[in-house]
Nucleic acid binder design. Sequence first.
DNA 1: TATTGTTATACTCTATAACTATA
DNA 2: TATAGTTATAGAGTATAACAATA
Lengths: 152, 152
Amino acid sequence: MEPDDRLLRQFVGYNMKRAFIPVQEDVSETLATLGLRVGTFSALAVIMASPGISQTQLSQVLNIKRSGVVLVVDELEGMGAVERMPVESDRRAYALQVTPEGRKLWQRAESAVQAHEAALFADLAPEELRVLRGLLDRAARSGARRRRGEKQ
Amino acid sequence: MEPDDRLLRQFVGYNMKRAFIPVQEDVSETLATLGLRVGTFSALAVIMASPGISQTQLSQVLNIKRSGVVLVVDELEGMGAVERMPVESDRRAYALQVTPEGRKLWQRAESAVQAHEAALFADLAPEELRVLRGLLDRAARSGARRRRGEKQ
DNA sequence: TATTGTTATACTCTATAACTATA
DNA sequence: TATAGTTATAGAGTATAACAATA
């Protein structure tokens, strides 16, 4: 009887984690060559897609705490990729914006991660990857709804 | 323009992480009621399926370091769920075994996690969940092979 | 009173490296 | 010399809680 994880394979969550491990390792290494981490890469993507977003909004989209956003934005700002702009109507808040340098950085990072995902998932057909993304999206929505419902 | 993560949704890895977050939260809470963590639950499952497994083998199956296995086995042993048995042929090693109490604990934990996954993924048909598990398995193998290949 | 951003702190998980006892 | 298990320590990522400025 050779050791294995057969009792764990029945769980969808275990398979998610197992599939995610090599992706996370590979993406982390890829982003590191550009001076990014997964957290700063994700934040940059959201600010790209939502110029003027506040840190609190960013924390909600990324599903992390506001205190964590501070560190991520500090890092992006330190790299010259993002700026904290004042908000006229609310002097407590910042409107986050991607600088021209940040745009270039995003494009390089996006291409690099696309290439690395293509290599990582080379055994799956494009059609299968679409199905996988779709099912993961449905699973994420289902799980999030269930979790929200429980708390109420 | 309301803030969103649309630039991240293109990546399979991001969707994996997003789907995994509610699962991990829910499973952690579920297991906590039984005195287990995800790490001890996973180890218990592997030792259940592979009686006599060594700590080094367990570290390989769970994809963690031997130093981490020590803490997990300490915890399971402290709960009376697992025993470190001497190995006749090698006095450095232990043969890990699940106790009768550990078996009962596993069965309760397995049922609890099955029930919580069913609730979490209620929006997906059983057929879809099978497809999802299958695609995640293929993605995990593809990613792991690619990562191994790179290192050589 | 509530909210935005901030800071300091703590916790969890895991990795690294040095050690021991055996092989 | 190499390996199994152990220990101590450190790092990454994130959470909590208290705070100042502003609403």
